[in-house]
Every structure is written in structure tokens, then in C-alpha cells.
Write a protein that binds this DNA or RNA. Structure first.
Lengths: 109, 109
DNA sequence: ATTATTTATTGCAATATTACGATATATTTT
DNA sequence: AAAATATATCGTAATATTGCAATAAATAAT
């Protein structure tokens, strides 16, 4: 086999898994942190910042964009990326619901 | 290549990515939700609940356990799983820091 | 128009993940 | 001790991910 059986899970479970997967790589965590830290669009300083090839970073950016976590606009010869505010908020809410659903009680195991 | 170059990222970035990856599958989201919803240990009703083979579920449980998100104790012939309270708290804090680091401002792109 | 600059895409090799049947292990019941 | 029950592990096939060199595409500067 080798392919996730998405059809047996709920839409919510699949969507959350997709968002988590988009962030589940140290390079993509680093990219997001860099975008957040710079507090504005970043235009092409990622290749110098991280130690990965340009093609690799472009690929990671594409995945983040596909997941809707970031957005980019062409700015002359370069492309500027920033967080997608709506989706970031949605993700925060979904994760808060998911993670906050657990309330530590008397340990059972 | 095909293997993540962890050495070029920080310990924090790698650890967060590992935790996110552990959750980044609909089956594992479903397993965690089921454990949380039942509010106590669950002992082997996952195979009936989800539509996956026993071997597959055992594998997913192992990954969640390796990541430290759940813990299990042998209870007679079956094994009971529950959330690992300390690590769950840690994950919540790390994610809040990460996700909360972004504050929506005047959109730039 | 040519050259430089920046990002995207393609192609490919190495590795990882997903799923499951078969089988092993471990405990309880008979 | 043998059978039943529950979980783990092994082996394997199918698919996905990661990384990069090479190349394409698109705009800016000369």
C-alpha cells in the first residue's frame, strides 16, 4: 500500500493532519519563524539564512503556500512572503481546540 | 538525497518538527482525539473504532509513544494508553509560543 | 537586445512513510 | 498444558518526501 486512507477519517481530522504535516519539517519551522520574526514580508533572504539549496527552499515555500500558511506576492524581480493571517488564526483555533481538549486528571496509566 | 539535514537547524526547530510530524497523520489525530474524549485510559478499542488493521494501529501507537505524546501500561492481556501529561503540556507551550509569535499587522503582501 | 538577478520547475537518487498479512509474544482462561 | 485474547514485530509492496543540480521563466539593469 503506502498511501494514507483518508476516506476513513473525518474532514476535520484530514485537514488538521495536512496543516500539521506542512509545518512538520525543521526547514519549514525555520522559514515560518523567520517570516514571523521579521514582522514583515521577506523577499529572498531565506537562501542566505538557511543552509539549503535554492531549489529546496523554493519547494518548501511551495508546500507552505499550498497549505495556506503563507502567501506571496511578486515584487519586481523577487517574491515576498508573509503569513496568511486568516489561515494562521484558523490553525491556532483548531490546535487550541485539539490540544486544549485534554485536561490532565488523576493519571490512569 | 532524501534525508532531512537536521544538523543545520536548531534543537528547538528539530524537536518541534518531530512532535508535529508525530501528529501529522489523520489516524494519529483520530487516536489522540479518541484517547482525549474517553477521558481515561483506553485499552484496545481502537481497532474496532478506526477502520485500520491491527498492525497498522499498533505502528501508529508506537510512533505516538516514541514522540512522548502518549504512554501505555500493560493491563493484564491488553495495553492501556493515555496522554502523557507533562509532554502534552510542553507541546502546548511550545506551539503557543510558535503560533502566538505572529501578530497580524497591516498586511504587507 | 544582452546580461544579471531572482524564483520556479524538472528530473532523479536516496530515504521515509503507510498499510497489511503473517507471525511472534505475553497473559488469562479453561 | 492447551486454547483464547490482545498487542507487537517482521517483511514487503506501494507511495511520498527530501535534497540538489540543471534548467527554465520572468523582470530589471545596462
Amino acid at each position: 500500500m503506502g498511501l494514507t486512507r483518508t476516506e476513513i477519517f473525518t474532514k476535520e481530522q484530514n485537514e488538521l493532519a495536512i496543516l500539521l504535516k506542512a509545518m512538520a519539517h525543521p526547514a519549514r519551522v525555520a522559514i515560518l519563524q523567520h517570516i514571523i520574526a521579521s514582522k514583515t514580508c521577506i523577499c529572498g533572504d531565506l537562501v542566505d539564512e538557511l543552509g539549503l539549496a535554492q531549489a529546496t527552499i523554493s519547494q518548501h515555500l511551495k508546500e507552505l503556500k499550498n497549505a495556506g500558511l503563507i502567501q506571496g506576492t511578486i515584487e519586481g524581480v523577487s517574491v515576498c512572503y508573509c503569513i496568511n493571517p486568516e489561515n494562521w488564526e484558523k490553525l491556532k483555533n483548531q490546535l487550541n481546540l485539539f490540544l486544549g481538549g485534554y485536561v490532565a486528571s488523576a493519571s490512569c496509566c
